[in-house]
Amino acid sequence: MPALTLNNLHKNFGKARVIHGLNLTVEKGERHAIIGPNGAGKSTLFNLISGLYPVSTGDITMNGRTISNLDSHLIHRLGLSRSFQVTNIFMGMSVFENIRCALLWPAGLGYSFWHLCGRLKGVNAKAEAIIETINMMERRDVLADVLSYSEQRTLELGVTIASNPDIILLDEPTAGMSHSETEQAVALIRKVTEGKTLLIVEHDMSVVFDLADRISVLVYGNIIATDSPEKIRNNPAVQAAYLGSSIKTTTC
């Protein structure tokens, strides 16, 4: 059973048809990249899958279960987590508290107002372990608001994976990073998504071709090709529609 199936998906904003008739299958455990020019509908697609936008028509299934038009928090509880194109963390909280907040629901604490967070030894230890994994131990008690940009992006990745989701959606995780920061980010993504299903939107072709098992090319709200990185690189339709010669210059 595929991890994610998008069947004849449509999304309209008024008269604007942003996604129309999109079909996509993401297999369990694969790293699947979505590429496409600006305005192709990549972020909209992520927002549809994660429940941020309601679907106009069509179906989205996750591990065989329909999740179209479910609320975001319910989709998250089913095992899908995501990051955003613009950093999306709790800026008024420390690194530790950001991660701990993400662990409260999976720990079964719900909306408890009778447990003291300081005494949740298991949750706190797990939060420490995640901070260690994302190499932010030295910044443990620093407010997220004053972290550097790449640290904030790393923290967002930590928050995204904290609940141990089956499916991870990353929206341009290396956007705005320097070359060395990007390399570190890719290594970290590879490490924390080991054994998980990853769907990633990324503009940096070196990241895409480095990480992805399969690539889908989204142009004007529809997928024009889905294949292995090598075949996508040599696909004339893809080159004509989106990549042109840049694919060879960035990766060969």
Partner: peptide, 22 residues
């Protein structure tokens, strides 16, 4: 200091992220 108290801060700071932690 409880989960609800911390989540109230979380929702104040960023309700969208709060929904993506469940």
């Amino acid at each position: 200091q409880t989960p609800l108290g911390r989540l109230a801060n979380a929702v104040r700071d960023n309700p969208i992220r709060a929904s993506f932690i469940g």
